[in-house]
């Protein structure tokens, strides 16, 4: 077994928690050391954050004007140049990692494993297929470098407490000019906790009926300091932006508490929440599939139950 390299995800200022989740995955099997690659522009603080994750030996920091935005076409050759010293190269199974890691793997002439959930020895892995309706066990022993994305909902972030050395590296790859970053329009969260990493999440479905009515979901979320999510039906109906979508085609999350309101529980939604600690469902249809996975179900009209709940949770 060799060393593990993890590609850090960040927003230009702070490290994303997904990076520490990848460290947890790497920590779950015997290896010769875990290093983190931080690509950034003026990202000294990010490299410091990475060096403080428990279990990390080294942070390889490539700070350059090319690395201001996480463009896969620009980052992949830099990661691939670092990867030759490693037996494993991991990234998170967020849109960042899904965009980047296959490009890295192809440069290295190897395959990639998506969404790894568990491993015993760092050679054999479990991953979901068919929207989580089946779990396959895959043996990657034949790969000289194992490139993978780590299913972030399957791992608890490694804690702080490390003191890794930070090595500054120069870009040792040719950087293409064919892809250019323009802008990020985003953050519809309104200052609420981040959906992907929040301990509590309140989600609304099509039964909310309108963008205005979705305010009930925000109100309830604010009472319990929760992030807001939505079903694909609610997103498709235009009640909220797509970055709040939870499910197979949205975000896969694992909060301690998940409250699904007016969500019927289509398979593709359940795929996104099955690792939640406790699932609460409020729906007026007692036959809704969401009740099959809910720890606590309340069969009620959401327009009665949610305002009532908000009043009872009043701070």
């Amino acid at each position: 077994m060799g060393r593990v390299l993890i590609c850090a995800e960040h927003d230009g200022e702070r490290l994303n928690l997904s990076t520490a989740k990848c460290v947890s995955c790497a920590n779950s099997f015997a290896n010769d050391g875990i290093d983190i690659a931080v690509l950034s522009e003026n990202g000294g603080a990010i490299a410091s954050e990475a060096s403080a994750i428990d279990g990390v030996s080294k942070v390889l920091h490539i700070d350059s004007n090319d690395n201001g935005a996480p463009l896969a076409a620009i980052w992949a050759p830099q990661i691939a140049a670092l990867a030759t010293d490693y037996s494993h190269v991991f990234g998170p199974s967020t849109t960042f990692g899904k965009d980047l890691m296959p490009r890295v793997a192809a440069l290295l002439g190897t395959g990639q494993l998506s969404d790894i959930m568990s491993t015993t020895d760092g050679r054999v892995f479990q991953r979901p297929i068919y929207a989580g309706n089946a779990i396959v066990t895959v043996d990657a022993s034949a790969c000289s470098i194992i490139v993978a994305t780590v299913r972030t909902a399957s791992y608890v972030a490694a804690e702080e407490g490390g003191n890794a050395t930070i090595e500054h590296r120069a870009t040792e790859a040719e950087i293409p000019s064919h892809t250019r970053y323009v802008e990020l329009k985003g953050d519809t969260g309104g200052g609420r906790p981040d959906l992907q990493t929040a301990a509590r999440v309140v989600s609304g479905g099509r039964a909310l009926g309108s963008e205005d009515n979705f305010k009930l979901i925000y109100d309830l979320a604010d009472r319990i300091d929760a992030a807001v999510g939505a079903s694909r039906a609610a997103v498709d109906s235009g009640y909220v932006a797509n970055d709040l979508q939870v499910g197979q085609t949205g975000k896969i999350i694992a909060p301690d508490l998940y409250i699904a309101i007016g969500i019927s529980g289509a398979i593709q939604h359940l795929t996104g929440i099955k690792d939640a600690g406790t699932i609460v469902a409020i729906n007026k249809d007692s036959e809704a599939p969401i009740f099959e996975v809910a720890d606590f179900g309340l069969v009620a009209d959401l327009f009665d139950a949610v305002p009532d709940l908000i009043a009872r949770l009043g701070r």
Partner: peptide
Amino acid sequence: MFAVTNVAPPAERAKGIIVDDTVALVAAL
């Protein structure tokens, strides 16, 4: 490059309970 050695159904969540009202829900949480 990879060998699939097993295909299994996903782990199922334990069956939950239906609560009567928001009072019971808040108490349970």
